[in-house]
Amino acid sequence: MLDAVRCLVARDLLLALRRKSDVGTALLFFVIVASLFPLGIGAEPNLLRAVAPGVIWVAALLSSMLSLRRMFEADHADGTLEQMALGAAPLGVVVAAKALAHWLVAGLPLVVIAPVLALQYDVSPSLYGVLALSLLLGTPVLSLVGGIGAALTLGLRGGGVLLSLLVLPLCVPVLIMGAGSVEMAAAGLGASGQLLLLAAMLVGAAAAAPWAIAAALRISLE
């Protein structure tokens, strides 16, 4: 069972490595969205500092929506998804591996690049840690919850927009706690409460989402 997880994660990373452009586009989208805000709302430093956590988090949310569609679509099209559903490992374990791989490819780069964006917004360096930590805890939840949407909309026309429509409202708590943690830290109130809540969401999503994704895939594969 663990071998299946290792095998799938390694496979998806290898595929991402051979198609670097796919990884690059979502990351570039993140950077561009975050860079557009100052152009839209003005470069007043206090204003930018105030909106930075929210902007970076919303940009991260949108960017991960962009890459969610790829989680199962290609595997569905070439038939490998059916083989996974008929594999030796339970489908719940298989999709957990898929979500993990998706996060490594689409979520982790956001965590790494976020402090650079924070720099653009003149966020105090003391907050970089909280920002990165909040994204580190929050982006896997986006991959897990998003996976449910990706599985439900598998193979539907207009699936990309529909996917965002389904998943974005469900991700509101992650956004609130993620951006909130940085704001709390900025206000000197300590972010541990929000970070713990994010961690709790991660644990809850990791426990429940794979089974929901597996159920959704079985529905969509029929």
Binding site: D3, A4, C7, L8, R11, L14, L15, R18, R19, A74, A77, D78, G79, T80, E82, Q83, M84, L86, G87, A88, A89, V94
Partner: peptide
């Protein structure tokens, strides 16, 4: 089960594909 679609990934070699298929099937 071998379905309509060949269940191989374009960006992997034939050997990689087969090895992964075998590992996933246990």
């Amino acid at each position: 089960y071998l379905g309509h679609a060949p269940a191989v990934k374009d960006d992997l070699t034939a050997a990689e594909n087969l090895s992964i298929a075998c590992r996933l099937s246990g």
